[in-house]
Design a protein around this nucleic acid. Sequence first.
DNA 1: TGTTGGATCAACT
DNA 2: GTTGATCCAACAC
Length: 200
Amino acid sequence: MEILGQKLTRDFYLRPTLTVAPDLLGKTIVYNHPQRQLAADIVEVEAYVGEDDPACHAASGKTERNRVMYGRGGYSYLYFIYGMYHCFNIVTERDGFPAAVLIRGVEPFIGKDIMSRLLPPGKSPNWLISDGPGKFCRAFGLTRKQNGLDLTGSELFLIDRGNEKPHVGVSPRVGIKKATKREWRFFDINSRYVSGNRTV
DNA sequence: TGTTGGATCAACT
DNA sequence: GTTGATCCAACAC
């Protein structure tokens, strides 16, 4: 199935991270796996910008883990955390400057039934499957295998399908103890799929 | 070689 | 509000 929309090009990702992050709200992530197609609209993100940002993985320099963050914008940065979860980031800005946007919440658009099968059994049908960075990666089946993918390619990419501009809320980033004064979390205030709106 | 704690989530009290 | 699950990168030694 072909989804109607304009694929985001390299230029989109090369802009300043604090411009790209809120601009990602309402855009659609498409994951074309050989056996399945998944798509979801972004409703919550966080920006991590450069070695001067104490909360950014690049705060203490380049390592094997954060290597793709140092590359050109428009690539995926996936890492494993807390022994159980993965987090998906979109690398931004020019080659050599480490920055990325963490995807924290999405509204399922295509393949919700497939996503549900990747989740633990016994949840009620209206259980939110993608409100939170770990839950999003689990619903999409994203792991470190997808680290470093070119998001202008055909496997994993983003499109603008003309969604209405969301009403954007701003807050400090979640789950970090450093740089809590920086309000670099952006979310669609009308979406149920923003993390923290627990519905079970 | 060993230790520690994290951009999480859900199930407790 | 607190804790368990469970891995591995980063850093200390």
